[in-house]
Design a protein around this nucleic acid. Sequence first.
DNA 1: ATGCAGAATTGGTTGGACCATTGGACCACT
DNA 2: AGTGGTCCAATGGTCCAACCAATTCTGCAT
Lengths: 244, 244
Amino acid sequence: MDQNSLPPIQTTARDDAVLKALVGFVRAEALQPGERLPTERILAERLKVSRNTVREALTRWEGLGLVERRQGSGTYLKAAVSPDMLHMPLTLAGGNDFTSLMQTLEIRRALEAEAAALCAERASPADIAEIERKLDIMEQAFRTRDGMSSEEDWEFHQAIYRVSGNPLFEQIIAAMHELFHRFWEHPLGVRDFGHASFPYHRTMYERIIARDPQGARAEALKLIATVEDDLKRGAAKLKLSSQT
Amino acid sequence: MDQNSLPPIQTTARDDAVLKALVGFVRAEALQPGERLPTERILAERLKVSRNTVREALTRWEGLGLVERRQGSGTYLKAAVSPDMLHMPLTLAGGNDFTSLMQTLEIRRALEAEAAALCAERASPADIAEIERKLDIMEQAFRTRDGMSSEEDWEFHQAIYRVSGNPLFEQIIAAMHELFHRFWEHPLGVRDFGHASFPYHRTMYERIIARDPQGARAEALKLIATVEDDLKRGAAKLKLSSQT
DNA sequence: ATGCAGAATTGGTTGGACCATTGGACCACT
DNA sequence: AGTGGTCCAATGGTCCAACCAATTCTGCAT
């Protein structure tokens, strides 16, 4: 017998139903991130469920970063919601910090190279102008502050992900970026962290405007390689691998 | 004034404390994934908190995929936990049109190639034996059922991600896989979907055992390319691009 | 042994109560 | 006008006790 022809029926799934209703509400009211949604008590009454059930549902959304609860104030939307969104909780098992850092870079290396290649294929003249603008801002910041242009650097990269035409690149790499910087807020003893990557931003840009996907990919790989080198230097310097 | 010199203070965080205690318990008892952890009632009593609080904490862990709750049975550990885990919930807005499907493949192309290369570099003899086992199972299923070996096919790929040594590959690609199959359960009109990719599984395996990262990468790219072709054929056939 | 009914266990839900924090209203004083 | 203080209502956080629903165990009848 084909087991797929008899999917398990859904008797109860109260909190899921609550979240579904909440998605509907957010869309109906066109709520934007930052706005407040109804109080738990009102939701419980309207949906005819217990307040505890509402709370379990909201706890799940809070864990996913979709919502923020402030005691005494209310519950606020933190991100856009849609009926068909997929949740992907990434868990990076501690281990030593160096390993985790390196793992985020392995993902980023793969995606950064692909995004650069796609960008070189698909960029419109307007896209190129935007990328160049971000590149100029970054180089300016790099020179005036001598290094430490991480904010502008990141904006340049984001522009490329956007031009790749695939929003998944930006979302996933952004997650890697945040994961990375949770360890690396103050470049572990490596004073000129990021210095080495600087020239490759412009060379990557040049391969993009030349509509050279393979070249752009190669430059992106070189760029990530310098970051990996910086990381290895920091690890060797601090021997930070001793944890728990 | 430096605003950073006065960070907001942290008062209470009951459920966080519960999770921290639970991490300690899991480590103390050396619980492995699949094992059952104490009853909610017992936890509440031992930790001197309400059962509701325990439930909120467990709900968060469930949302992160760390734990699975089965009514009437218990709560089971689903993954290893450690005190310094990092969580990065990522929610992807899934579209159901041709473009979205293609976008998941672009991500997968980048990651699959990188994972295959890393696998070729790092696979131990035991790893290779495991991959070969999965490959044999898949080829067997393919021949007996003539096509339609998607389950075994997926297991083969997962084995490769695991051997890559970076758990993020499996987590992210699994999300892409789910996003893809949410709308592709029955290969939209393409009867022999996946047929074309079949031979590349073995060629990829051969490059891996040959410790040839670039070769493995190339075979992975060919494999994904056949899937993209299948997708394009399905799209042209059904013109499925009309969807909300 | 086998199978089945019933009890015990366990997560899921409910309703009601109280606590802690927030933010606004109001007021006194400067 | 502005500063600080007090009060109060709204809101999320916690607690309790009970019951519901799914699962698992138990022991009896066959």
